[in-house]
Design a protein around this nucleic acid. Structure first.
Lengths: 208, 208
DNA sequence: TACTGAAGTCACCGGTTAGTGACTTCAGGC
DNA sequence: GCCTGAAGTCACTAACCGGTGACTTCAGTA
């Protein structure tokens, strides 16, 4: 009846990639397999082997498309190091929360070390670090007396973990992550932590 | 040859619980099943159904033993709210890093919502929150002008995420989590964040 | 028009899983 | 000493997985 098969190799490849993203972001990594992806794409699983060399190759191709989905073209807020970092982290948190696929990959990385998730994680890590690199190049240098990498890693880890907990059971440490107001509180608290860790006075002195 | 079966129901129950903890903390949650646990315990899987009603009941019983493993009898550091929170968080981070089982469960919670992990997570959450409640009761109240729950949740989330990344690929945001020195830097940065978020001056004023 | 090769389908294989029924083995009460 | 019931073992089913070989169907081309 329906004619999903037009014998178009590129179209089928694209359908498989879309299906892989769908399965991964909706069902999670444990359901991410050749059977489920092929079922979602409406074609036979053998095509995954023919076109991608297997599930690992499909994940690799999916990772190479990640930079498209993780497009983080946030305008950089002007100001000192603390202001820039605050804007960066807030934007990243919002982008992450809205990106179910990236969240699934982040969670997957925490429970598996297989080649499939490695291919995905490497591609994602490349895209994100390039973005941070580019953003940092436009910002003022951090105060020399602080361990900025450690501080930023802590805040980034918090953003990751809270975003991951959000679409799991929606609670963390007594906070209700399903309420928008909770996220406003979190962003305010993050801004406060950053503002007090990177006081503006230390930065102003650099502007002399 | 070996006589592991002494027809002792309680001993077999305990063996199954130990085996469940072993499998979960060593192999991870994806290998956590009736077959693997029974194999580890050296008995038949049917006993899991007979004694625990299935894998879910076994996980429930395991969760009820979690308070034993998560024994956090850290002495509370004296001082203001910030000092107490800093000591609390540092101790929690160290205890968490040393506890592979709890880390596995935390990661499991991020990728699965099935009844088995829910039973575990609920029991763990109960134990941890009771401990935090008890610790907070002995500390000074937080500064009223700050959103202490949000700030603490951020730092706790960071501790969770960094601990989980440690025994995965050992890197996060450019930090090498396999180096003890990196963890010293992280603890120092956490202390700095807490100290500046909860300045001692605001607390001293409460002591009048 | 006939052929060739690629696109796509189907059926199977071996392996693993959860779960169940039937069986044997033993210990304690009478 | 026997008998009942529980502890433990074994074998099996049904369903799923990843992976593969054989097949059909179609499009472009000579």
């Amino acid at each position: 009846m329906s004619r999903p098969t037009e014998r178009d190799r590129d179209a089928t490849r694209a359908r498989l990639l879309d299906a892989a993203a769908q399965v991964l972001s909706r069902k999670g990594y444990s359901d991410f397999g050749v059977n489920a992806v092929a079922r979602e794409a409406g074609c036979d699983k053998v095509l995954i082997y023919r076109y991608f060399g297997g599930l690992e190759g499909l994940a690799q191709a999916l990772g190479e498309r990640l930079d498209v989905w993780l497009r983080l073209d946030l305008p950089l807020a002007p100001g000192g190091y603390g202001m820039v970092m605050g804007g960066l982290l807030g934007g990243y948190l919002q982008a992450l929360r809205a990106n179910g696929l990236v969240k699934r990959i982040l969670a997957w990385e925490l429970v598996d070390t297989g080649p499939t998730v490695r291919a995905l994680g490497a591609a994602k890590s490349r895209a994100v670090s390039a973005w941070f690199q580019r953003a940092r190049a436009q910002a003022a240098p951090p105060p020399a007396d602080l361990d900025a990498p450690a501080i930023n890693a802590i805040l980034l880890a918090a953003a990751h973990h809270l975003a991951l907990r959000e679409d799991h059971d929606g609670t963390f440490a007594g906070l209700d992550l399903t309420q928008p107001d909770t996220w406003r509180r979190i962003e305010t608290a993050m801004d406060l932590l950053i503002a007090r860790a990177y006081p503006a006075a230390a930065e102003d002195r650099r502007h002399d």
